[in-house]
Design a binder for these strands. Structure first.
Length: 887
DNA sequence: TCCGTGCATGGTT
DNA sequence: TAACCATGCACGG
């Protein structure tokens, strides 16, 4: 093979190095190359290949021939052409596929690998059967586990090559990676589909329906099989039973359109790193449970865990293993891995009780059968190779069973897992070991995120890779760090939480996330406030439930919030505030601004393209301007019909929508109010929230994304981390201070309260109070953190600024609540004085506040950061006031 | 009183 | 509506 052309399709000659013939115009398709292409052959070689005598014809003198242990037939094991034509036997030797299949059929329902039992309870007879068939099914030794599925159908060389993506051949995958041959899954799959379809048409591919009949899976199972074959796209083509449906869902290789509840089908074309759990050993390890004995599970793409057959694993339990994860689990060995299922840890799972509730179907499908509630000790290996013994058992529950793994606490602690993280179960072959891996919440939930932008062309989660490569990387950081890193994925967790409330409110970690997200929240109104119509586009205005929506045919632009107005000439203009000097600059109404805009960006007015230039706007004009902007901004909401071509805007929207949803998802009273007002329930609504696919679906930003939105968000999270640290130390300091100041006069107390109350203007929107329920102690401690002490830095109005929920509107809210202050600051600013010139901390602070206010709402993080650096105590105060206001 | 165990309950799908 | 499953809770050591 070494002399084979580098590319099958580019060469003019037959891909068979032994044959120098020119390829015909329509070359015959041969075996699957490592690049994913099919070898293109001349007619003669093609026929030989299709008839299964290629190696017989051309490799007779080559090394690598072995005989089938059962029928004695020679198989050219050392050759890619026949790589799928045999299976390795545990005792050694090989078996040709035909024999292997026969054996599988004979003992299809037995093969739970005894090695998984701490004390094997299987009868020897069964054990022997299991071992043999297990290994066959799993493939053993160096034979990648993808080979196993070939056992499921009638095997011809051709069909063996029609693999589906989840048939992960680790070594091949790694080779590809190393060779830089990262083939896009989509194109690869396309080729596969084409190939498959082609061979279906020319009849070279025998489909396996016959086998279903042969092995007794016809009848009831057959329906399942067909369903899964047709819809899931998870199976080897050899398993496909419906020749007339060549597409059989491969275009959606992971998501199942067939899921009875349809939730996965909605995932559309998103690809996942490792396809669904196509437990190749499905046949074998599906213990009978309530199944009738002798029944086989052959060809079910997903486990059929009980006799009702219609039941299938919920998509949320489908393992989403990346190649790297598989590799990580298998280590350097030649072991092959079968992803079984995964589960997001609930609070109970991760709690101290040490019971991990197992999804019933997964337990019944992948774990050994248990008939007694006491269950069995189960040996499980973690990714580091450490072995754990859990008690796999069940409780009777509502005429059903509830399966649990007991004693998982040490393991979970060792992995430093918490609620929301995901544990994965897979099986290592040929050892038959059960392997428990994990994925931290940030990298996890591809199911929720449907996040293909996090993945490279091969559908490999880079995020996940990093974590897998260093599983401790996450756990090593403190909560702040964790959250900071997790931020972009946080919404996922939230959406999940919103969906099912499966993550307990008692989870400390979740509380903290709530806290974070309170701070990160951006309401949908705020997010929409950041949208601008695309250039040269006049939005149409729709009124829904009393709210005006601008609707764009094109993608909206994310920009710095500005104040629209009309100048003396009657022309539409907008006012924007420089981020450096806070002066307002007049710009054309159609000017689109980046989220960070400074005077130097003022290309429209060179005279005012420097911060040193005076502000054009007089105080009076500003006064006129404010009510305008307030009313406009408070009512205006913008909707957009997205243009997928506008990636930048799309990404921004996405993030904003994430944030918006995050905010809503926090189930804050105030947020939910916004939610109820939001016309999301209107069919066809294209506002920023509604265009965001629910539950984390849809394109997301990559971790490395450097768009404005992401940068801003990241900045913000950095700030949050710092703030938290600061808060922590402040708290401690406050405690000390309080102790020292107990005896101070009441009037200070009163003043403090007064200040606090001032900050609690009912007009101000409260987005911050949610966590108060979760953290009463926090609330308590912050109720009056400055008791007995006057802090001149306290700016009640800045509370707003600190309230993430109110940052968007920024200037608007500020001026709404404090028009006089705003004007004063503007006067100072326009007179050229620095904000510090007054020497008055309050004023300076106010100036900052304006700056903050005028910033894009999502810039708040940086602003908060600045503010907290300057006046850490006031931050604490504001947060507390905010909390108190709604607590 | 604490903790582990086993079952019951109720929310979600 | 039934099944699933997260979690609450009673009970006993």
């Amino acid at each position: 093979m070494s002399s084979a052309p580098s590319s099958s399709s580019s060469s003019m000659v037959c891909y068979n190095p032994e044959c120098k013939e020119l390829k015909p115009e329509r070359p015959r398709k041969g075996w699957r190359l490592r690049t994913g292409e099919l070898a293109e052959l001349c007619d003669r070689c093609g026929s030989a290949y299709e008839e299964g005598r290629f190696c017989d014809s051309f490799h007779l003198n080559a090394s690598g021939w072995r005989s089938c242990e059962s029928c004695g037939k020679g198989v050219h094991c050392g050759c890619i052409v026949s790589s799928n034509a045999f299976t390795l036997l545990d005792p050694g030797g090989i078996e040709c596929i035909a024999c292997a299949r026969k054996n599988v059929i004979l003992s299809s329902n037995t093969a739970w690998p005894p090695s998984l039992f701490f004390h094997s309870t299987l009868p020897e007879r069964l054990k022997d059967l299991s071992v043999k068939n297990w290994s066959q099914l799993a493939g053993s030794g160096p034979v990648p586990w993808r080979q196993a599925p070939s056992l499921f159908g009638s095997i011809t060389p051709s069909e063996m090559h029609s693999r589906v993506p989840y048939e992960v051949d680790i070594s091949a995958a790694i080779n590809k990676l190393n060779a830089g041959e990262r083939i896009g899954v989509t194109s690869l799959e396309k080729r596969k589909i084409e190939d498959f379809s082609e061979r279906l048409q020319n009849g070279s591919l025998k489909l396996g329906a016959r086998d279903a009949l042969e092995n007794g899976t016809a009848g009831r199972n057959c329906e399942d099989q067909i369903n899964s074959c047709l819809n899931l796209g998870q199976q080897p083509s050899s398993l496909k039973e419906e020749p007339s449906t060549p597409q059989f869902g491969l275009s959606v290789p992971y998501a199942s359109a067939s899921e009875t509840n349809g939730q996965v089908g909605a995932a559309g074309s998103n690809l996942r790193p490792t396809p669904p759990p196509m437990p190749k050993q499905f046949i074998g390890n599906l213990h009978s449970g309530v199944d009738s004995p002798g029944e086989t599970q052959i060809r079910n793409a997903r486990p059929r865990a009980d006799a009702r057959g219609r039941n299938q694993l919920l998509p949320r339990y489908w393992p989403r293993f990346t190649d790297q994860e598989l590799q990580q689990i298998s280590g350097d060995s030649n072991s092959v891995i079968t992803p079984l299922f995964e589960k997001m840890l609930s609070a109970s799972d991760a709690g101290r009780i040490g019971r991990l509730v197992l999804p019933k179907k997964c337990a019944e499908a992948y774990f050994p059968p248990i008939s007694q509630p006491e269950g069995l000790p189960l040996k499980v290996q973690d990714a580091k190779g450490k072995e754990w013994i859990f008690q796999f058992r069940f409780w009777p529950n509502n005429n059903s069973r509830m399966y649990v793994l007991e004693g998982v606490t040490p393991c979970i602690q060792s992995m430093q897992l918490q609620a929301g993280d995901i544990v994965t179960f897979s099986r290592l072959e040929p050892e038959g070991k059960l392997v428990m891996g994990f994925r931290k919440a940030s990298a996890a939930t591809p199911s929720d995120q449907e996040n293909e932008t996090n993945r490279n062309g091969n559908g490999v989660s880079m995020q996940g890779d990093a974590e897998l490569a260093d599983p401790s990387s996450w756990s090593k950081v403190d909560k702040s760090g964790y959250i900071a890193k997790e931020v972009l994925g946080a919404k996922t967790l939230i959406s999940r939480k919103r969906k099912s409330s499966t993550l307990g409110s008692k989870s400390k970690r979740l509380r903290i996330e709530n806290e974070d997200m309170m701070e990160l929240k951006l309401t949908w109104e705020e997010a929409q406030g950041l949208l601008r119509p695309p250039p040269n586009h006049v939005p149409s205005v729709v009124v829904i439930e009393g709210f005006e929506f601008e609707e764009y045919e094109d993608a909206p632009i994310l920009g710095k919030p500005t104040i629209f107005s009309t100048d003396n000439m009657g022309e539409k203009i907008q006012w924007v505030q420089c981020e450096d000097c806070f002066k307002l600059r007049k710009l054309p109404a159609d000017a689109l601004l980046p989220s960070r805009w400074t005077c130097s960006d003022n290309s429209w007015d060179p005279e005012r393209s420097s911060c040193s230039a005076a502000q054009e706007l007089t105080a009076e004009e500003l006064e006129d301007l404010i009510p305008q902007s307030v009313s406009v901004a408070s009512k205006k909401m913008k909707a957009a019909k997205l243009d997928s071509e506008n990636l930048e805007a799309m990404e921004g929207l996405d993030t904003l929508a994430n944030l918006a949803i995050m905010g809503e998802g926090e189930s804050l009273q105030s947020s939910s109010q916004a939610t109820t007002k939001h016309p999301r329930h209107r069919p066809g609504c294209s506002c920023i929230v509604c265009i965001q696919p629910p539950s984390g679906k849809g394109p997301k930003h990559k971790q490395s994304c450097t768009c404005n939105v992401c940068l801003t968000v990241k900045r913000r999270f950095r700030t949050l981390m710092m703030r938290r640290e600061k808060k922590q130390s402040e708290k401690e300091a406050e405690t000390t201070r309080k102790k020292q100041q107990v005896s101070l006069p009441d009037k200070f107390d009163n003043e403090s309260n007064l200040t606090s109350n001032t900050g609690n203007s009912p007009n101000q929107k409260r987005e911050f109070h949610d966590g108060s329920d979760d953290e009463p102690s926090r609330m308590k401690s912050s109720t009056s953190p400055f008791k007995g002490q006057i802090d001149l830095n306290i700016q009640p109005e800045r509370e707003d600024e600190l309230s993430p929920g109110s940052d968007s509107g920024g200037i608007i809210k500020f001026v709404q609540d404090n028009p006089a202050r705003y004007l004063r600051q503007q006067r100072l600013s326009s007179s050229g004085g620095s904000e510090n010139s007054s020497g008055n901390l309050s004023q300076r602070d106010g100036g900052d506040a304006i700056g903050d206010k005028l910033n894009n709402g999502i810039n708040l993080g940086r602003n908060l950061h600045d503010a907290s650096d300057d006046h850490p105590s006031s931050i604490s105060m504001k947060a507390s006031a905010s909390t108190t206001a709604t607590g």
